[in-house]
Design a protein around this nucleic acid. Structure first.
Lengths: 198, 198
DNA sequence: TGGAAAGTTGACTGGTTGGTTAGTTTGAAA
DNA sequence: TTTCAAACTAACCAACCAGTCAACTTTCCA
């Protein structure tokens, strides 16, 4: 019933790109509309506020990213490899973004979280939810690696949190220094933290 | 010659507080002026732009913080203790901010960096400079610890970067979850990364 | 084929943004 | 006590902000 449209998806794509390349604050509704080729009236036909579009955008981005993560963290893959492959995937993704934007953009969830978490609780809750899900990938891989004896035994949750915090810190530095090379440390860093044997 | 004034310092203090509690984007020149009790005309008498005040503010904050760090990282203190004390100092500082603002605020350099580094190169350069200085504290403590045989031997710079990225990731999570408890992991996390013996 | 649901449009609002300016007040030094 | 540089003030600006709305167009499907 009624006509169909791709405007909603175009708005979501534009929002992700603009936030990632800049920040939430530097991304205005007018910019988003221009980039998506959508008039402002249509924007507010599909989303009730800028915050709501941001929530929809990161939710969509995460749904897409999860598909990749489910493959990377497949139980078929040796557990330590899962984590290293995840980092290699980060590196590759950042390389593609660099080709496109001429800049290392880092992790949008993390950058957004730093910016808005004291100011926009709707967004903050959504970001928390996603990060809480993300860390479970590390956690289960670490548990499997420990069961298999390929890394040192420690509280798996604690180790997962360290690896997670480390990866976010590194992605931020890569963004701040606009330097893909920083991401090469991922692999050796993860091995040190996890106490990979052999 | 001319009258004296504390307005410049009041502006710097207000800027630090507002950025820390919120973000660069959520902090308007009007807000800063209100908080500092300074009229906008005076603002632009002392600073040529909002960016310049931000640069002055983080520069001032860093100068203050360095005094503390120089004590914490005194060569008199055992090297591993220096790092652990630094983390204890983070935790204590965040506790005080929590009492004042009812929120965990994390590291302003880091949050600002995530927000503005693709957008404001003047600010980005200043933040880079500060972080580059900060990491040297870790680096020299790690070198001393290795010389003393109290931690595993690895490239000191690489270890320093891991510890640094980890601490920033953790501070961000504490901010996002508004949870001081996350900072308790600092000590055990650092010991795992550094391979503290005994 | 007609009606109604869904998408589109452009003009509009009131408030806020970073920044400017011309003129006034002040107080430290001479 | 005069002087004048420095500090202060209030009114002002154009651009931009998120968000509104009523009229209009398209397209699905009964």
């Amino acid at each position: 019933m009624g006509r169909t449209s791709t405007a909603k998806d175009r708005l979501i794509d534009a929002m992700i790109e603009l936030i990632w390349a800049g920040s939430y604050g530097s991304t205005s509704v007018d910019h988003i509309c221009d980039k998506a080729g959508v008039k402002k009236g249509s924007f507010y036909h599909f989303f009730e506020s800028k915050t709501e579009l941001a929530v929809a955008a990161i939710e969509h981005g995460w749904t897409e990213h999860r598909k990749e993560l489910d493959q990377i963290f497949s139980p078929v893959v040796p557990p330590v490899e899962r984590i290293l492959n995840c980092f290699r995937n980060f590196r590759q993704e950042q390389e593609e973004l660099f080709k496109k934007h001429g800049r290392v953009l880092g992790c949008p969830i993390h950058s957004l979280g730093a910016e808005v978490s004291t100011v926009d609780e709707r967004l903050r809750d959504k970001l928390q939810e996603i990060l809480s899900q993300f860390i479970r990938y590390y956690e289960s891989a670490i548990r499997d690696a420990q069961a298999q004896g390929s890394i040192v035994t420690h509280d798996a949750m604690a180790l997962a949190r360290i690896v997670f915090a480390y990866s976010e810190g590194l992605l931020l530095h890569a963004r701040m220094w606009n330097d893909l090379g920083r991401l090469d440390e991922f692999e050796s860093g993860a091995k040190i933290i996890l106490g990979v044997k052999g």
